[in-house]
Simulated assay, not measured.
Amino acid sequence: MKNSLGGARSLIDAHIHLDKYARSEQRRIMSEMECAGIESLITVSYDLVSAKENLKLHREHNNIKAAFGFHPEQQVLNDEAMQELIAFIELHNQEMIAIGEVGLPYYTRKENPFLNIEPYMEILEQFIILAKRYKKPIVLHAIYEDAGVVCNLLEKHAIKYAHFHWFKGDILTIERMIRNGYFISITPDVLYEQEIQHLVNQYPLSQMMVETDGPWTFTGPFEGKMTHPQMIHQSIEAIASIKALEIADVYRQLLRNTKQFYQI
């Protein structure tokens, strides 16, 4: 895909659940990637079954990069299941691009305020230790007050390569994350959500990526549409507008950020 200046408008979807799409949707996305200017997809895992499927997708398509983890917005893993997932990660550590998606169950806790958070904390710390052991980035589900708690754990283990996907939080946490060099990624709701627009304005472009979190669906101009990585082009236009930057420069910076962060 070419911009009006003749430069390539290439991007990487830094956070997608490709395994959660129907097979026909997966085929459509992968067949349209080159035409849509999408260099790679970083597909994160929900659990062990998800990790196995994402590994298969990576082996079939080199531009699909797989991260392995346990999404926290579900019932906590028991010790046996956690050890099985750890064993899978250890076995396939050279094929994974990152640990993720991992974090804390913010939305689940909103529905159940009496949920015991400690088992989730223990699991998250184990994933942080694995990320450090294998020198891999960690992809985090940590928003609002959870983000500060996660920052504490990251600082405890001196983790530098942390990616807070679809982040939302207060200004003090934002400033802390910026100081620590942590990255965020912006979703297509930047076109219509003021909170995300404010975040884009506050966070440095040099610590930013873009994502869809597909197959999660969006509203606004994307109402009723299957979430496709090509939506990110509109996200990048919005980011450039908010930051009053040349769109070609924003494309180059975001692509460079993602490649350097994930060593692609």
Rank of each mutant, 00 (worst) to 15 (best):
Y203S: 07
Q230I: 11
F222K: 02
P229R: 05
S185W: 10
G224T: 08
Q194Y: 01
W216G: 00
I232Y: 01
S235N: 02
Q234M: 12
P188E: 02
E195Q: 09
Y192A: 01
H198Q: 13
E237N: 06
E211C: 04
T212Y: 02
H228D: 12
T227M: 06
S235P: 03
F222V: 06
E211D: 07
Q230L: 12
Q234T: 01
N201K: 15
P204E: 15
Q207M: 12
P204K: 13
P215V: 06
P229M: 11
G220Y: 02
G224V: 06
S185R: 12
E193A: 15
Y192N: 03
S206M: 09
F222E: 03
H198T: 11
L205F: 14
P229I: 03
A238E: 14
Y182W: 13
Q194H: 05
G214W: 02
V210H: 02
I186Q: 03
L199M: 10
V210M: 00
Q202C: 06
T187M: 10
A238T: 02
V200E: 00
N180E: 09
E211N: 01
T212Q: 00
G224N: 14
N180G: 11
E237G: 04
Q197K: 14
I186R: 00
P188F: 03
M226P: 04
E211A: 08
L191V: 11
K225V: 10
T227N: 08
H228G: 03
Q202E: 15
Y203M: 13
Y182V: 12
L205I: 14
Q207G: 10
N201R: 15
P221S: 06
G181W: 13
E223K: 13
G224K: 11
I232F: 00
L199G: 03
H233C: 02
Q230W: 08
I184L: 11
V210Y: 00
A240R: 09
Q194P: 01
F183H: 13
M231N: 07
F183S: 12
T187Q: 10
E223T: 15
M208Y: 05
L191G: 05
Q194E: 13
P229Q: 07
E223F: 12
Q202M: 13
I196F: 04
L205C: 06
K225G: 13
E195N: 11
S206I: 04
P221L: 04
I184P: 08
Y192C: 04
T227I: 09
M231A: 10
T219V: 07
E223V: 08
E237P: 01
P188C: 01
V190S: 12
N201E: 10
M209W: 12
I232R: 01
Q234Y: 15
L191S: 08
D189V: 03
H198V: 09
D189F: 05
I232M: 00
E237I: 05
T227Y: 06
V200M: 06
P215Y: 09
P229A: 10
H228V: 07
N180K: 14
H233P: 02
